[in-house]
């Protein structure tokens, strides 16, 4: 589904990613792990088109996306959440999800200004679908709350809800469990599995919580100083000597 080919990226003199290649199979939950500063977020930024790679190519369902702007990539069916929560803070919970519907709807300034019949219909659909998503993620009762007023755990869930509204085929999650307690992390894990099983969304998960990663991932790629040092099933990765010394040994 997603093929990452020999991606390289540097910031000034710093090489953030070097010759990174791996694949994410359709319908899988794949994890990308590695110590802080390994380049995980940078890779997600490149996949989602926030900035282009220096070299290399990424293709999604057979088409090259690494030369597309973020908007087109989102429309192609890749959505994401952010390590540092990036909600629209002064909008309500419901409105945040409704913004996610943007790329799947089409009313413009003039048709909205004139409240044309198709606009009203579309607006109703947007609201209904967004409420449906809030039901699914369990935040319906919070719908009129400002997003910035939610506790961190709910903010992370809301980011997932907003991403779901774009109807993604592939969902990129950047450390969704960071700052969550054990109970919240557990229900987050259940939700991720449900997204894959019920909504058939492929997941690429960046996460430090090894319990969560080992429990729900089908495959794991390990990044260290911008390079892939291992790629395999959770069992294979856990046994991998390079991983143990480079990552599991030094971190946590």
């Amino acid at each position: 589904m997603l093929a990452i080919n020999t991606i390289g990226k540097s910031f000034g003199g710093l090489i953030a990613l070097n010759n990174v290649s791996f694949r994410v199979d359709g319908g899988s939950i794949s994890a990308l792990i590695g110590p802080n500063g390994a380049g995980k977020t940078t890779l997600l930024n490149i996949i989602s088109g926030i900035f282009p790679p220096d070299i290399g190519k990424i293709s999604f369902s057979g088409t090259t996306i690494s030369d597309l702007p973020a908007t087109k990539i989102a429309r192609a069916g890749i959505s994401r959440t952010f390590q540092q929560v990036e909600l629209f803070g002064d909008m309500t919970v419901l409105e945040n999800v409704m913004v996610g519907r943007y790329s799947r709807t089409r009313s413009g300034f003039i048709s909205s200004g004139l409240r044309l019949p198709f606009v009203r219909k579309e607006e109703r659909e947007t609201r209904d679908r967004s409420l449906g998503i809030l039901d699914y993620i369990g935040l319906r009762s919070r719908k009129d709350e400002l997003a910035s007023n939610l506790p961190l755990g709910e903010q992370r869930i809301l980011e997932i809800g907003r991403a779901l509204a774009t109807e993604p085929g592939l969902l990129l999650l950047d450390e969704p469990a960071a700052g969550l307690n054990i109970r919240e992390t557990r229900s987050l894990g259940e939700m991720i599995v449900r997204l894959r099983n019920e909504k058939k969304i492929t997941i690429l998960l960046v996460e430090h919580d090894m319990d969560l990663v080992m429990r729900i991932s089908d495959r794991i790629a390990v990044l260290n100083f911008g390079e892939v040092i291992a790629d395999g099933t959770p069992l294979e990765v856990q046994k991998n000597q390079a991983v143990i010394s480079a990552y599991l040994g030094t971190e946590e």
Binding site: S48, G49, I50, P69, A70, T71, A74, R75, S79, R80, F82, E86, L87, F88, G89, D90, M91, E95, M98, V99, G100, R101, Y102, S103, T105, S107, G108, F109, I110, S112, G113, L114, R115, V119, E122, E123, T126, R162, A163, T166
Partner: peptide
Amino acid sequence: NFINSRTGRALRALHGSELASRAMGLD
């Protein structure tokens, strides 16, 4: 009318986080 609709929400979103707006497919 347009502020309380798709486009107006998009404008406020843009104001809130340009990064997230781009990731959500806003042009």
